[in-house]
Amino acid sequence: MHYAILCYETADDFTRREDPVRVEGYRAAHATFLKALREAGVAATSVAGGAGLVAPHAATTLRKRGGAREVIDGPYSDIKEQLGGVYLIDVPDLDAALAWAERCPTASTGAVEVRPAMYAP
């Protein structure tokens, strides 16, 4: 199945992008994650350019704090964090998608929402 990992970043994450010093850590963390996705062969390739997403009822949100993962039913919504980016992955099931989501840098600062992609039209 194709899943989108939606990265909801904090205000600080967005600030880091503009900070010439701190941006390097931010970029490196996401580059490492993307490299891991590619090396594992789960970075989606067949849906280049993006994908429509199933409605929020099918969403699962994950946060990682102090090493512990917290998974809840439903989409992520909060006024403080904003959608900062999307990863598309191709894995067998939700547990595999959540395992990757846990490794996404945004899980440790903001939150990531995992949403299945709709079947290709």
């Binding site: 199945m1 899943y3 199933v54 009822h57 099918a58 969403a59 699962t60 039913d73 067998p92 099931d93 939700l94 547990d95 595999a96 998608a97 995992v114 949403r115 299945p116």
Partner: peptide, 13 residues
Amino acid sequence: KKIRESGVAFDVP
């Protein structure tokens, strides 16, 4: 519907 559409596996974790 959530199980089906979000791909919850029936495997033992």
